[in-house]
Nucleic acid binder design. Structure first.
Lengths: 174, 174
DNA sequence: GGATATTGCTCAGTATGCTGACTATCAGTA
DNA sequence: TACTGATAGTCAGCATACTGAGCAATATCC
């Protein structure tokens, strides 16, 4: 195999590559992906252990509907930073599971008003310990102080980058 | 709407809910998802600005193939913590773009040996500034010291949770 | 050597997430 | 009121990620 490294002097190239690409596993983007990957796996495992079948995304949507009864899909999306095209499918599944309801709005015939069902409320209540346990587990390698610091730094980085994704977090517009 | 809160005394319940569910947006799992969401958006935007069409996952795979010529798919998956079923599609697309090659292994007829093409090498080289710029942007809200600390804490949390996802990071088995 | 277990890869199915396009509706304005 | 622009939601299409199943080949153990 002929590589560029054969055409230049070795130490110079090694140094250059060391500086430029580094280890892929040490880049913030990779760490973000990996932490999220573990977080989702832990969430699903804890929730499944508790006897439920709910994804992190579905949980967040359901909890937000409960806290803001009658909200529309775009508002929900803004409150938890989902893309509006993703919300459609998530709500479909919550409705199909009988945990939420989607009704046409009378104020605005374009909009759908979302409500949690009794079954949804029951599920949220029973699932809460598993959700909290999952949050603890995903910070399990850190001391309490480190966990707090990680969350503070994530919040700060996220706040600065909020507008950079297609689905930024939006304040409630009461 | 009849809720549990109507059946118990209000302050007690408010405190309980405050303690139990908190704001969904403040949970580690949500922060993980959000940070990753921004990281991917920034990566894609920077790379597109540079005139390329490569996802974070494809980039990581290509860079790892370059650093470990001839490796098989399972080893690649382990090196960057992908699920082996995900790798199949990622390699498909790298091959289809002409950036990598997949050859049957002579040692083990089950395995496929992966190689980067000249075109792949050229792409990696030209794309590197955009990738690095993306890493800077996603930490843009943090000081240099905070960025370092965030990465340290992420590495630590990830190391502790490595085995909890279906696709843990695996050391090179040379 | 032969049964058994393991491994490398793929595939079908499901659930995020995104881009871009489209419909229906609403809001503001000339 | 008619026009224009913005907004709510959906859809098609693509790319991760995962579960679970299956096939082919290799390793291991008796």
């Amino acid at each position: 195999m002929l590589t560029i490294s054969m055409l230049v002097n070795e130490p110079a190239l090694a140094a250059l590559e060391e500086n430029s690409v580094k280890d892929n596993n040490d880049m913030p983007g990779h760490l973000a992906r990996r932490f999220q990957q573990i977080a989702v796996a832990v969430f699903l495992a804890e929730v499944a252990d508790a006897g439920f079948d709910l994804t992190p995304v579905q949980y967040a949507a359901l909890a937000t509907i409960k806290a803001n009864p009658g909200l529309d899909q775009v508002t929900l999306a803004g409150l938890i930073a989902y893309d509006r095209t993703t919300i459609t499918g998530v709500i479909d599944r919550l409705v199909q599971k009988g945990l939420a309801e989607r009704r046409a709005s009378s104020r605005d015939r374009r909009a759908r008003e979302l409500e949690i069902t009794d079954e949804g409320r029951r599920t949220l209540r029973k699932i809460t310990p598993a959700v909290e346990s999952a949050q603890r587990i995903m910070l399990g390698g850190l001391s309490a102080k480190e966990g707090e610091e990680l969350m503070r730094l994530l919040r700060k980085a996220i706040a600065a980058g909020n507008e950079l994704s297609r689905a930024p977090l939006r304040d409630v517009q009461v």
